[in-house]
């Protein structure tokens, strides 16, 4: 057992490839045999991943999902920012330039709305839960944009750590919801072409949520959504602690 553990941990990335490969194979089998293709195999695989992260969190008490279990440390490298960005960029090879250019203006509109709408929703709910100071309201509102915009804004404005935690949790929860919810609502919101995928990427924002959700819906839409989503966090970090904060302060006063 110890020798096996050593072999798996010493080759962490290879262990990750093997484990994820098995999960993918299992998910595709479930999709085909049990659900008759109604739910995409990648959607099932992502849900299994999230469920494993939940179980690992209960078991280890850590905050990095299965990565806190030493044998699975390679999953951290495989699903980390470096390889994630590398693979997202690679999908650009499939982008149809004509299609992307057609959706350019509407993508920019989606980006603007995707920052402002969640911010308003998050801020209103913060107010409804009794927060009255502009810093806390802005930080929680920013968390509803993405889980990176939240803490960046909170740090810039000097929010309390409890508010920061709420803000991050809101963003993470949103990302998880987008991953799981996208394949379910895809048909209803017309998510079957490059144009709506770019609108979707700009509006939902969270790169992990968008890329996971689109992957589970239709792998071919991923590059279009990722193309706009990647500008979302930067835009949010730019406007939330500045313009949006000033507006909130103007409304609630200090």
């Amino acid at each position: 057992m110890e020798i096996l553990k050593h072999a798996l941990s010493a080759n962490a990335l290879l262990t990750a490839f093997a484990v994820v490969g098995l999960v993918m194979w299992l998910s595709n089998a479930i999709s085909k045999r049990l659900l008759f293709g109604r739910v995409h195999g990648s959607a099932i695989a992502i849900v299994i991943g999230l469920a494993a992260a939940f179980a690992a969190g209960l078991w280890t008490g850590g905050d990095k999902g299965v990565v806190d279990i030493p044998v699975f440390a390679g999953i951290g490298l495989m699903g980390g920012a470096m390889l994630r960005d590398f693979a997202i960029v690679a999908t650009a090879f499939e982008v149809d330039v004509v299609q992307a250019r057609k959706a350019g203006a509407v993508g920019a509109l989606a980006l603007a709305l995707g920052t402002i709408l969640p911010f308003i929703v998050g801020s209103l709910i913060a107010v409804a839960f009794g927060y009255t100071d502009a810093v806390s309201i802005t930080t929680i509102g920013a968390g509803a944009v993405t889980y990176i915009v939240g803490p960046v804004t909170g740090a810039a404005l000097g929010a309390s750590s409890a508010v920061m935690a709420l803000s991050i949790a809101t963003g993470v929860f949103k990302a998880v919801l987008v991953m799981v919810g996208t394949p379910i609502v895809a048909k209803a919101i017309g998510l079957d072409n490059p144009r709506s995928a770019m609108v979707f990427g700009g509006l939902m924002g969270t790169v992990s949520g968008v890329s996971g959700g689109l992957a589970a819906t239709d792998r071919r839409l991923v590059p279009y959504g990722a193309l706009t989503a990647t500008f979302h966090t930067g835009l949010g970090c730019l406007v939330a602690p500045s313009i949006l904060y000033l507006i909130v302060r103007g409304i609630v006063g200090g």
């Binding site: 990750a16 490839f17 994820v20 490969g21 999960v23 993918m24 990648s42 695989a45 992502i46 299994i48 991943g49 999230l50 494993a52 992260a53 690992a56 969190g57 905050d63 990095k64 999902g65 299965v66 990565v67 699975f72 999953i75 951290g76 495989m78 699903g79 980390g80 390889l83 994630r84 693979a87 993470v172 990302a175 998880v176 991953m179 992990s208 890329s211 996971g212 992957a215």
Partner: peptide, 11 residues
């Protein structure tokens, strides 16, 4: 598969 690995390490 990389996205699946990413999902498995969320909090």
């Amino acid at each position: 598969p990389i996205v699946v690995a990413m999902a498995a390490q969320q909090n």
